[in-house]
Every structure is written in C-alpha cells, then in structure tokens.
C-alpha cells in the first residue's frame, strides 16, 4: 500500500462527522471531495473519480442507496463503503444489495476505519460484527422457496462459521487462525457472502426486511 494515495470521497450529511474522518485518515489517503446530500454526492463523485466512497446509509434525499444506484452504472470501478450510526437492518441490507462492498458503524476506531477503506479498495468485502449479525439473521433457516439458483440462496456451513466469528468480534486474521485457514480464504468466504447477499432472490431476504419494518 505504498502506492499512490487512495482517493476517498466522503458522503455524509453531518459536517462534523466529515471533518472528523478527514482528520483521522493518514496520508495513505487523499480526500478528493465531500458532499452532504444525494444530488451533490452524485455530481461530486462523477467529477472527482475517487477510488472509494464512504457513504452514510441515512441521508436526506434518498439515502446512500440512491447514490450507489446512480453512480455505479456509469462508474463501475468506484467502490462504496457504507457507514451508519443508527442501523435499521433493512436499510443496511438495502445499501449492500445496491452494491456497497461493506458496512461499518461510525463508532469504529480510526485505525480500523483506515483498514476497512484499504480492504474495500482492494476489492474485498468488509463486514462489521453488526453486519455479520444482520446477514446471519437474514439467511437464518433453510431457503424453503424453490428459486432459480439455490446456490445463491443459502450460505455454506463454512461461510456461516466465518460470519459467526466475525459477529463474535474476531478480526479476519483471528478468524483465519481459529479455523486454521489463510486470511485470503476468509476474505474469499466473506466476498462470497457479499455476492450472495447482493444477487440472491431469496424469498426470506425480502420477507425478513418487511418483518423488520413493522415497527
């Protein structure tokens, strides 16, 4: 990672949080722009062509999902890392399904935030314990509906195991050690889960989301 700095774009409607991230990130990163709402985020990202966009899940004007939808069709190389403070499970899952490569809570330590950005930049998936919990919850039980691609609708035993370790607070490296596999393999599993999360037409995913919405 001694290569050129990773270009980061910040999208968050709280200016305080943006300036906080700005001061936390070291010189491995270059902040190329920031925005506080969906419209200016889309325009700014398209103009500044960042590597990674840090994206708030909740925002006025449609939320992070809208930004991803708008940008990713024309700029597929730009990667998104979702952040939020108040995480309603269905909103987080929706942002991931729209195309974000990971999700972390805003209470994350600065060093871990930097790690997460690097990892997303390299194309890996970043799962916080909370997201791992959401995913396990969403994929709980067996897919009862007959679907086009049953592969996509279920997690393998190994993937489930990896997610459980992440939910228990283990870092990727520690998961690898526990399961006696390489960190790369852990990353492969997590990426596979991300892919399933994004592509699955699993009936439960939608039902689960609607169930949760009944506040």
């Amino acid at each position: 990672m001694s290569d050129p700095a990773i270009k980061v774009f910040l999208v968050d409607d709280h200016r305080l949080f943006r300036s906080g991230v700005r001061s936390e990130l070291d010189d491995r990163f270059e902040i190329v722009g920031e925005a506080g709402d969906v419209a200016s985020a889309v325009a700014g990202i398209k103009e500044s062509q960042p590597d990674v966009v840090l994206l708030d899940v909740h925002m006025p004007g449609g939320g992070g999902r809208e930004v991803i939808r708008d940008v990713s069709t024309s700029h597929p190389a730009i990667r998104f890392l979702a952040l939020s403070v108040s995480d309603a499970a269905e909103d987080v899952i929706a942002v991931i399904r729209a195309g974000a490569r990971g999700y972390v809570t805003k209470s994350i330590a600065p060093a871990e935030m930097a790690n997460a950005i690097v990892r997303v930049h390299e194309g890996d998936a970043v799962f916080s314990p909370r997201l791992a919990g959401f995913v396990l919850d969403a994929f709980a039980g067996n897919a009862t509906e007959v679907s086009d691609d049953p592969e996509l609708d279920q997690l393998t035993a190994r993937e489930r195991e990896v997610l459980r370790y992440i939910a228990r607070g283990y870092a990727y490296k520690q998961v690898a050690k526990q399961l006696s596999i390489s960190v790369k393999t852990v990353e492969t599993h997590v990426s596979a889960v991300l892919r399933k999360l994004q592509l699955s037409s699993r009936h439960e995913l939608t039902r689960w989301a609607t169930d949760r919405r009944l506040v």
């Binding site: 108040s86 995480d87 309603a88 499970a89 949760r212 009944l214 506040v215």
Partner: peptide, 10 residues
C-alpha cells in the same frame, strides 16, 4: 437507547 426506540418492534 434511541436506536432501540426507533428500530425495534414495538
């Protein structure tokens, strides 16, 4: 507290 008030089922 606020999160549970906002998002957990009533």
């Amino acid at each position: 507290e606020l999160r549970s008030w906002l998002y957990s089922p009533a």
